[in-house]
Design a protein around this nucleic acid. Structure first.
Length: 881
DNA sequence: GCTATCACG
DNA sequence: ACGTACGTGATAGCC
């Protein structure tokens, strides 16, 4: 068999990769762009040239003979950036795992090693490929050696062998050395002959073929060229020597050791995971013809014939992996097409909708653990059948969210499959298509559907124990099993229950808004002198800043900024501004909150069934979509009216409970700051207390301005705000803002300490944690970019506080839900807005509901600071203030 | 599909 | 000196 050797100039390629690719980090913040670029290049080369042998040569730090001969050699080169330097060792480790040979020898550059090894390989009848970004290596090209020079970063290569060099440059590869001897090389600081550049150099080489021959025939030259050469003969000879790649470095090399082939696949996969190269995992599969897929999966998927036998087995094993498939439709209606179930993940059965009830005994059994992927969907699918899916034990989506809440993927099964199993499977989008042409499950043939869902079930079965191990190792098992998994049912019930809407009231508000919008529109057109689309920031910008010539306050990437802040600064300048502000406000209310809500009211229940998502936010909060019920207006009275349409059902009231200052209490507890803890212990108004401390006045002398300033400081601290930002907010000087912050930290000194330690830990560990041990990785904190690193610090300061508050209310939700159930109450938890819970309580239960909610919320966790909950009852959300 | 804006905690 | 507050989702305009 033909032997093909690839020799890579490690330093050259890692450099190219580093400068060609944007910054990349793994989740601990290690820079990885150069490693990534190198690896993709390696894969590409292996794929194209199918080498039997590979070696990567690296420079050593020790000086080479070139430095010793010419002390200016490579002088003036910039020091390697740290962000690149740190990537060498991980790359070398990765190459070792690929079983790819490495060559490093003191006193010789990678070039010389490559020159020598390629020569030996040529003599042994190898076909040689040299990969580098450095054109000097073209001198090594021959009939047996092809030099591959990278182009466009490291994405492509250009081939040079003897013939192509002759064709392209009309000189032999070795004559390139003579040319460089004449021209010199800026990057290596090789002098060459001063005054002789590329054009003259090429002419001379073509005529005389070498520097030696030029010197011998120097008399046949004339003019300035002759003079330059006569004066710099020695320089030319030395430059040629410096430019000559050595091909007889004294090394003992056994080419057999360079053989490429088997490597420890698990080790490489592990490395890729650590480096965060999930996309490369799939390349690994292609690279090795699919052999890297560890487990050959063969699934038996069939219709379940003997239901009783399966039930018995499931009860025996106390385990059930399941995935329901439903048609698109109303959340309140029966829409299941099939349910796929399995115990071992390999023998997978499906049943039709009409037989689902037969499985109720295991589905609603507390003895059988349910393991799945997006279990809330299964819970909700079964809900209209009056089947309660009980003991939802493990959801791989939620587990993966806990493992890495900052992951850029959305925890798709296909992503999880690739990450944990190095196994490719279709994503849902690949299965169904996207956009308007997207198919639905009901459009698929049963066979195709079964193949896909079968794989999902198998991934769940194969992956969940590995995830569990990871979660236990990172002390998140209680977070998963005691908080997040029990919460699945709570959120499912909230979605199913929904919130009642007063449709008439909503329409009435809409009519009012629309009328007002028309009036404002007319007034604005009159003031501007022409009609335009007020909703277009671009058109509005032209009107304000060109036609009306108002001063430009701020610019956006694309033009003038016209946001509320800018408009506020312009309001004295022109009467149109206030009209536009009001117009914007009402348009927002009308389109988002009136039309938006109307379009999504469930026709069966006349209620709004929002989705509560558990795996979106990086901090641990829940998010709400379709519609978002967590941003219903409250601050301004006009918008607050929207809350009048969210009402309680007949013979019910809304019980609204919200935590008072939960984030500041968390901060007081986590930092252990006695001063702040004390303020909460004495039920003092925290902002007044802060004002009194920071501005050094008696409590009774704190004015509302001072309190307002203190409030801004308190919130700013939670977000890691700067003096600059605070100054902007409070309209004071940066110097003054700095004094406020300094004074704050001197009074609440443990808070300062806490912030510093948190940042330190984040830098050291790469992550921060909450009270319930929820993790957030912060790769930004290791960035070499000032701004990015500062963002990382702010994330580090904020995530434990916001995340712990999220932990607390999640615990409260689970406990409130449990208590309502235990007491056989009909009242239902229906909403959560980060620090607020709303229960729709039937009238006879209001007192006990209030008691339960207050107790469970206030006692969700035990801290050095007590939690305090405000309760309000009303017929609408508006009334519960 | 991106950008600007604005609603909430 | 750098640029400057965390976390979300919906809508409209525009390319």
């Amino acid at each position: 068999m033909d032997k093909r050797l690839i020799i890579i100039d490690g330093n050259s390629i890692i450099n190219r990769a580093f400068y060609a690719l944007p910054e990349m980090n793994n989740k601990e913040g290690l820079k990885t762009n150069a490693i990534y670029g190198f690896t993709t290049m390696l894969f590409k080369i292996i794929d194209i040239y199918k080498p039997t042998h590979i070696s990567v040569a690296f420079d050593r730090k020790a000086p080479t003979f070139r430095h010793l001969e010419f002390k200016e050699y490579k002088a003036g080169r910039k020091k390697m950036p740290d962000d690149l330097g740190v990537q060498f060792e991980p790359l070398k480790e990765l190459l070792d795992k690929f079983n790819i040979h490495r060559l490093e020898i003191d006193g010789f550059e990678a070039d010389d090693i490559i020159g020598t090894v390629s020569k030996i390989a040529e003599e042994n009848d190898y076909k040689v490929y040299i990969v580098t970004g450095d054109k000097d290596a073209i001198q090594l090209a021959s009939n047996k050696t092809t030099t591959l020079i990278t182009k466009k970063g490291v994405g492509e290569v250009e081939e040079y062998d003897f013939n192509s060099v002759m064709e392209k440059y009309e000189m032999t590869p070795t004559q390139f050395i003579d040319l460089k001897g004449l021209m010199g090389d800026k990057s290596d600081n090789i002098p060459g002959v001063p005054g002789i550049g590329e054009k003259t150099g090429i002419k001379l080489i073509k005529e005389f073929s070498s520097i030696e021959n030029i010197i011998e025939n120097i008399d046949s030259l004339k003019g300035s060229v002759k003079k330059k050469l006569e004066e710099n003969k020695e320089l030319a000879v030395m430059s040629k020597r410096l430019a000559t790649i050595i091909r007889d470095v004294p090394i003992e090399i056994n080419l057999e050791e360079l053989e490429y082939g088997d490597f420890d696949k698990d080790a490489v996969i592990e490395s890729f995971r650590n480096l965060g190269f999930t996309s490369l995992l799939s390349r690994l599969v292609e690279l090795d013809g699919g052999n890297i897929v560890n487990e050959e999966i063969e699934l038996n998927i069939s219709k379940l014939e003997n239901i009783q036998e399966f039930i018995n087995e499931s009860k025996n094993q106390k385990k059930l992996i399941l995935k329901t498939v439903k048609k698109e439709g109303n959340i309140l209606e029966k829409n299941i097409m099939y349910m796929y179930i399995s115990i071992d993940g390999k023998n997978i059965y499906y049943i039709n909708e009409d037989e689902i009830l037969k499985l109720e005994t295991i589905l609603s059994s507390n003895e059988v653990e349910k393991i799945g992927y997006n279990l809330k969907d299964d819970y909700l699918a079964l809900r209209p059948y009056d089947i309660k899916l009980e003991n939802m034990r493990f959801d791989i989506t939620i587990a993966e969210y806990l493992i890495d809440s900052t992951s850029s993927t959305s925890y798709e099964c296909s992503d999880i499959s690739m990450k944990y199993l190095t196994r490719k499977m279709k994503s849902k989008e690949e299965l169904l298509g996207k956009g308007v042409k997207a198919k639905k499950y009901e459009d698929l043939e049963l066979e195709e559907l079964s193949e896909y869902i079968g794989k999902v079930i198998n991934v769940v079965a194969t992956v969940y124990e590995r995830m569990e191990k990871n979660i236990i190792e990172t002390n998140m098992d209680s977070l998963l099993y005691d908080i997040e998994m029990p919460l699945v049912e709570v959120l499912g019930e909230m979605e199913y229950e929904g919130v009642k809407v007063d449709i008439e009231k909503l329409n009435e508000l809409g009519a009012q808004f629309k009328e007002k919008i028309l009036t404002l529109e007319k007034e604005i057109y009159e003031l501007s002198g022409e009609p335009f689309n007020i909703n277009s920031p671009k058109q509005l910008g032209v009107i304000l800043f060109e036609r009306l010539e108002l001063p430009v306050i701020k610019k956006t990437k694309t033009g003038y900024s016209t946001n509320a802040e800018v408009l506020d600064k312009l309001r004295d300048k022109h009467p149109i501004i206030d009209k536009i502000t009001e117009y914007r406000q009402i348009v927002k209310l009308n389109s988002t909150y009136v039309d938006g809500m109307l379009s999504i009211i469930n026709p069966i229940s006349n209620r709004i069934h929002s989705s509560f998502n558990q795996t979106i936010t990086t901090t641990g909060r829940i998010s709400s979509t379709e519609p978002n019920l967590q941003n219903i207006p409250v601050r301004l009275e006009l918008g607050r009216n929207i809350r009048k349409v969210f009402i309680s059902d007949d013979k019910c009231k809304l019980v609204d409970a919200d935590y008072s200052q939960v984030e500041l209490r968390v901060l007081a507890h986590m930092s252990g700051d006695e001063n702040m803890i004390d303020a909460f212990k004495h039920n003092e108004d925290i902002h007044t207390k802060t004002a009194s401390q920071v501005f050094d006045v008696e409590i009774e002398n704190v004015t509302s301005e001072l309190r307002g300033a203190a409030k801004a400081v308190n919130f700013g601290i939670v977000y890691g705000k700067s003096d600059f930002g605070l100054a902007d907010d409070l309209n004071i000087s940066v110097k003054q803002a700095k004094e406020y912050i300094d004074s704050y930290f001197s009074k609440y000194s443990k808070i300062k300490e806490f912030m510093d330690t948190t940042i330190e830990n984040a830098s050291k560990d790469g992550y921060v944690t909450t009270l319930a041990n929820r993790r957030r990785y912060i790769p930004e904190i290791k960035s070499s970019n000032f701004m990015e690193r500062n963002r990382g610090k702010r994330f580090a300061m904020n995530a434990p506080i916001q995340g712990s508050a999220a932990d607390i209310i999640k615990i409260a939700m689970v406990n409130v839900y449990k208590k309502l159930e235990e007491n056989d109450l009909k009242s239902k938890l229906i909403l959560q807005v980060h620090d607020e819970l709303i229960v729709e309580a039937v009238e006879e239960e209001i007192d006990i509901v209030k008691k339960i909610v207050k107790e469970e919320m206030e006692n969700a966790v035990s801290m050095d600071v007590h939690l305090d909950v405000d309760l309000n009852v009303g017929d609408s959300w508006y009334e519960t203030k």
